[in-house]
Amino acid sequence: MKRRHLIAGLAGLGIGAANPVLAQPRPRSGEKPFRIYMALFRGWEDCAQGFKDYFVNQGIPVELIVRDAGQDKSKLAGFVAEAKEMKVDLVFTWGTTVTQEMLGPWDKPDPARHITDIPAVFAIVSQPVGAKVVPDLVSSRRNVTGTTYLVPLETQMALIQSYRPFSVLGMVYNPLEPASRITIDELTALGRQLDFRLEAVPVDVADGKPQPTSIPAKVAEVKAAGALFLYIPPDTFINVNRDVLTGAALEAGLPSFAAAENPVVNSKAMFGAVCRYYPVGQLTAYKAEQILVQKRAPADIPIDAPKRMAIMINMPVVRALGFYPPMNLLGLSEVIDPESRP
């Protein structure tokens, strides 16, 4: 019965959730709410909302201390000091910058400048390993865990397979970007598991710079190698030149899949998948619950991304290719179609 009163009390406050700063659930008599210090970088957005909603929905009493750096890196040192002074139960860090500044590198955090004794969860860090927040995704080996927001490659491949089974996957990449190499290695390994071959073609490099003009030829090369899909990785060079790449793919009659939102929504990639921030926030809160309620060590909680993702289908491109999505996938997807009639 007690628990139900609590849930009721929490939910009553939940109605006012539109104004997140006010959303500080009332402590329950006899049991103190968990105090969570939320360090944000670009204000209150979906991830923070998902984080907060999770506690409300699960009936876990929390007091959220919300601080927004407003994209000002210099404020973060103050946040660290404040969190330590308040002796909060948990720290939540949003984004790579905040996480790096507040939690420090995994191998040598500075107890004076970083949060070390208080358990922390991070969110919206695209490359936690690359950013040296954690040594690997299995364990942080310290008082930290968190979430990534990139759809795991395996999930991406399964998604492409569900659109149409394929045996050759094409990819055009920037050889100067080290991340591309990692993606190629991982995809090659996955190909052995899932029985497909990766056809990865680097763009031409001139004067130490990748040449966007070479993209259409490379796409044609991939197509000629028998690729059924073109894989578009989340990569800066590609993102900048997305129109050239996706346009070339469409021209070549090669369906394209993007692991980012822009190529699909604002360009001509045929379909794509990303993790939305709201479920990332929920998943981060889920890890916080494991630390606070179930008293698990953060080092024991692996870092991962939400299992399900937002799938987007660019319908004009689909029609132009005449390469239609299966019914079930269509049902699950967000369809981008400016001329949509239904």
């Binding site: 998902g50 909603d53 939305r276 993702m309 937002a310 699950l332």
Partner: peptide, 15 residues
Amino acid sequence: KRKIEDRLALGLALR
């Protein structure tokens, strides 16, 4: 349920 869960999967809050 299916329609709601599909939208939840798109990363929207239930409410």
